[in-house]
Nucleic acid binder design. Structure first.
Lengths: 213, 213
DNA sequence: CAAGATCAAGCAAGCGATTGTTTGTCGTTT
DNA sequence: AAACGACAAACAATCGCTTGCTTGATCTTG
């Protein structure tokens, strides 16, 4: 799966025959650009990362990047696209097992936070102040995010809750707490991303499932 | 946008001989620069706001800004300083009345979110991805933020909680949820910032105070 | 099969625009 | 006169991006 990628340009339409021995990863140069760009942007932000930075990190000249991507914005869009796809795959995998609504939401939360940390918290860029006056990027991105968040919308919707609970606020509360984790997560600390996610989640379970044995 | 501008030039008399070095009362042109810079940066981000943008918004030439601030970074630092001060004042005011630990934390949460919204969510800039590789700014800012967060540390510390509850994760969970609110808050919606803060907070109260009327 | 054509991929160099900032001057208060 | 506050003009650096060209591989075709 996941070979697709599609999306407009789509070069190298699965060139016939061999996946020539490049690297074990098999990914072409384009993906390597996205990898490095992701690392840089996660660390220094979108504006803080120049095309020259990316080119240097991947070992090519600045202008050469424009063979793979028509613009910096398009590069970031592709990067964001890939990231959301990864997150979706992770969450879906985590949802394959559990059936209880609370367990399902918990599994999704764990997968979400683990995904955030593993992807280098690229979400940070997109998060609060990024979308505001950056409408060109914003448009396409908002849709992807919304589609991803739909899973959580569904999961919260499936929750057996007392009447009168605002599920929207509940979901946004949960999402905010989870998305904030990369801000303070310490890789050297005693808590894993999964443990943190569970602790956060359990507050909700404790609040709305008081009579649990 | 905002071409009209008018000319808020006319310095409002106000000429009190108080000059001093930095603090307070210097409310002439300098504070107006901070006001406009705050609006711009809250909307378009730090990098997205140029010194020329600020100068234009306040009605002076780019170079003139350097009479008031030695650098863009210093300008932002002053802006951040003022914002944190405002938030602290608000929270302290909210804490003057209530005495019950849960009520006190609730009041602080409400004041916090209301402050975030009122200050145009300038925190967004500082939030996730900003501090990372921007260490020069980061150093001074982290300290201010930490000092502000100390209030919440204390408030959570004063909470009567079941043994085994990780107060640090609880605080960071709460803080994340609250700080995320500006991301999705809709001024035209049916919920006020205060109501949202209360709804978020009540999840915690319900979780740890199950035997409450 | 060999010769030509096509194409992916990247180099080399530079464009125009914008960035934060500096310097020197000058009117207005005090 | 001396400070304050701002103007005017430019600075070097960096930005995203464009252009023209080269190379190696693959595909086409006589």
């Amino acid at each position: 799966m996941a070979s697709g990628e599609g999306q407009g340009v789509t070069p190298a339409s699965e060139t016939v025959a061999d996946e020539t021995a490049d690297t074990a990863a098999g990914q072409s140069r384009r993906d390597e650009v996205l990898d490095r760009a992701g690392e840089l942007m996660a660390a220094k932000g979108y504006d803080g990362t120049s095309m020259r930075d990316i080119a240097r990190a991947v070992g090519m000249l600045p202008g050469s990047l424009y063979y793979h991507f028509p613009s910096k914005e398009a590069l970031f869009l592709a990067l964001h696209d890939r990231m959301v796809e990864t997150m979706q795959t992770r969450v879906d995998a985590a949802l394959s097992a559990p059936t209880d609504p609370w367990d399902r939401l918990e599994a999704a939360c764990v997968a979400h936070v683990e995904g955030l940390i593993d992807t280098g918290n690229l979400v940070a860029i997109v998060s609060p102040g990024f979308l505001n006056e950056r409408d060109a990027i914003s448009a396409s991105i908002r849709e992807e995010r919304s589609r991803y968040e739909q899973r959580f919308r569904d999961l919260v919707g499936a929750l057996p809750l007392p009447a009168g609970v605002d599920r929207r606020v509940l979901r946004l509360h949960l999402f905010g707490a989870l998305n904030w984790v990369p801000t303070w997560f310490d890789p050297g600390g005693s808590l894993t991303p999964g443990q943190i996610a569970r602790q956060i989640f359990n507050v909700f379970r404790a609040a709305y499932l008081p009579a649990k044995g």
